[in-house]
């Protein structure tokens, strides 16, 4: 028996909004410790990893490890039926071929349930090594979304250059060039408005705008985002999911032809 109840159901709705453009289908691995999802996008350029800790749920039970393969378009359609303030429960029997989503209004006066067929997905699992990144940039998530959107007007790629002076995002194309520089904030009233740069060595890498823009669909999950970079390895874009976990996007850098 698997059962996970989340009073803040809107978080699960936001997680789906954050992955459904990038992934058509994916497996949710349910274990005693929580729920994890790892999947590559269709073109295998990026990797999404979602981690939801068991302690983050208001009720969590997982008697046996369970892999629930889901069509994310269908899951998203079902979660659209939940109101933002609904309590969401996911439930499945051991070895079941369906999962049930239960939505309760805060007053408990309306209860809906939706059953969805599970899929058998044969997906590659990639091992992500523990890495000390040369640069870790924390910035407001809305600012990062704005930068990716604005620079997408100029070209297909964004160059992210991090040095001790700050971080520079650049794009170049037919209409011209754009550069956005962010310096580390000296003092802020609110922590989520800060730009914080931890740098061991300067790094400059180039990434496809298309993917960065898809990652920013996670913006409603968290006021802050962190970007981790090291020379010649994938960028990690990470958003926390309330107090219950995090979503990480890994994106291969573009390399010289």
């Amino acid at each position: 028996m698997f059962e996970a109840r989340l009073v803040q159901g809107s978080l699960l709705k936001k997680v789906l909004d954050a992955i459904k453009e990038l992934l058509n289908e994916a497996s949710w691995d349910c274990a005693d410790s929580g729920i994890q999802l790892q999947a590559m996008d269709n073109s295998h350029v990026s990797l999404v990893s979602v981690n939801l800790r068991a302690e983050g749920f208001d009720k969590y039970r997982c008697d046996r490890n369970l892999i629930m393969g889901m069509d994310l378009t269908s899951m998203s359609k079902i979660l659209k039926c939940a109101a933002n303030d609904d309590i969401i429960t996911m439930k499945a029997q051991d070895n079941a071929d369906t999962v049930t989503f239960i939505f309760e209004s805060p007053s408990q006066e309306k209860v809906s349930d939706y059953e969805m067929k599970l899929m058998n997905l044969d997906q590659d699992h990639l091992g992500i090594p523990e890495t000390d990144y040369a640069c870790v940039i924390k910035l407001p998530s809305g600012e990062f979304a704005r930068i990716c959107r604005d620079l997408s007007n100029f070209g297909e790629s964004i160059v992210i250059a991090c040095s001790k002076e700050g971080v520079k995002f650049s794009a170049a194309g037919d209409i011209g060039t754009g550069n956005i520089k962010l310096a580390q904030t000296s003092s802020v009233d609110k922590e989520e408005e800060a730009v914080i740069i931890e740098m061991q060595e300067p790094v400059t890498l180039t990434f496809a705008c298309r993917y960065l823009n898809m990652f920013t669909k996670a913006t409603p999950l968290s006021p802050q985002v962190s970007l981790s970079m090291s020379p010649d390895v994938p960028l990690v874009v990470e958003y926390s999911i309330g107090d219950i976990g995090q979503i990480q996007y890994f994106l291969a850098p573009k390399i010289d032809d």
């Binding site: 990639l126 091992g127 790629s157 994938p234 890994f250 573009k254 390399i255 010289d256 032809d257």
Partner: peptide, 14 residues
């Protein structure tokens, strides 16, 4: 020019 490698170039299958 720059080319776009796949993510599996960096992370091995487990």
């Amino acid at each position: 020019g720059k080319m776009q490698p796949t993510i599996s170039k960096f992370f091995a299958s487990v």
